[in-house]
């Protein structure tokens, strides 16, 4: 089995310092929608300057380099234990090189481990064995500010008059955006999961964020709902950083998960504008990044 430590280190460097062009383009387009001279427009312009600067200087886009969340798809024959070791070594080295802030804190004592390596839950690594000979690793760095404004609803929700249907989903997701205000570093991306249990629902809402920006939801009804939620979230007028303005949400992605008859969860993972997500593909001994 090949050692991928160096390749994973490069994946972390790229994810932390170089925002994907598709995300940057969304932000640049949003500038045009904000009033000339407004502090909302000023905030988006500052964000774009920062994106250029971090790409040029190879430094983190945001000081909160977040929870490192790895999604590994591997062909038969690879060892999960060895991949975990390689990911951990790369994470510690990336921290040493200041591509990441030391972010793993012992919950009870408050002690920071200093190298982003914690217990079995930190960093987060999801594994899936797949057919074929290509290994891929998706990495998302998700900061604490936006993670804190994530929300989970249990439908029906009487306060919001939200029943167990897509109309109910729309209402609770808009409520989550309202509750978040600017605290999740708006304009954000919404990952929404409908269904699951409490745990799988939140995990699925993060997975929803992995769908490439240009890919439409395969379910037409959900695709329409995604668009409607984004449009209506922007009508809330919260704006970049909560300064008021026309851009609050850049995109919404919905995923579904089978549920129990008794449960109907809607989980919202809020991703800040600094949507740091990169993918590495290892094929024929070559690592490619997108």
């Amino acid at each position: 089995m090949r050692d991928l430590t160096r390749e994973i280190l490069e994946l972390i460097r790229l994810t932390s310092t170089d925002l994907p062009a598709a995300v940057e383009n969304k932000i640049r387009k949003a500038i045009e929608n904000e009033a000339a001279g407004s502090i909302a427009k000023g905030a988006l312009e500052t964000i774009c300057k920062n994106i250029e600067l971090t790409r040029k200087n190879t430094v983190p886009i945001c000081q909160d380099t977040g929870t490192p969340i790895f999604y590994v798809k591997y062909p038969e024959g690879w060892s999960q234990r060895r991949l975990i070791d390689q990911i951990k070594t790369a994470v510690a080295e990336a921290t040493n090189l200041s591509f990441m802030r030391p972010n793993a804190v012992d919950t009870l004592s408050g002690a920071n481990t200093g190298n982003n390596l914690g217990d079995q839950f930190f960093p987060t690594i999801h594994f899936e064995e797949i057919d074929g000979g290509v290994l891929t690793i998706d990495l998302m760095l998700k900061g604490g500010g936006c993670e804190n404004v994530g929300a989970q609803y249990d439908l029906p929700d009487d306060r919001l008059h939200a029943g167990r249907d897509l109309e109910g989903v729309r209402k609770v997701v808009l409520d989550a955006v309202h509750q978040a205000q600017g605290e999740g570093c708006a304009p954000g991306f919404l990952g929404v999961a409908i269904g699951g249990d409490r745990g799988t629902s939140f995990a699925a809402s993060k997975k929803a964020l992995l769908r490439p920006i240009e890919h439409k939801n395969e379910n037409n009804e959900l695709a329409a709902l995604e668009k409607r939620i984004t449009d209506e979230a922007n009508q809330l007028g919260i704006g970049p950083m909560g300064f008021s303005g026309n851009t609050t949400v850049l995109e919404t992605r919905i995923i579904t998960a089978h549920r129990l008859p008794a449960s109907f969860f809607v989980s919202v993972s809020y991703m800040c504008w600094a949507f740091r997500h990169r993918k590495m593909t290892v094929q024929d001994g070559q690592a490619l990044y997108e």
Binding site: A43, N50, L53, V59, I61, C62, G145, G182, M241, A274
Partner: peptide, 13 residues
């Protein structure tokens, strides 16, 4: 005073 969230490198300068 509100600073721009995520403008980390720009502020570090």
């Amino acid at each position: 005073f509100h600073a721009v969230g995520g403008a980390a490198a720009l502020i570090a300068e």
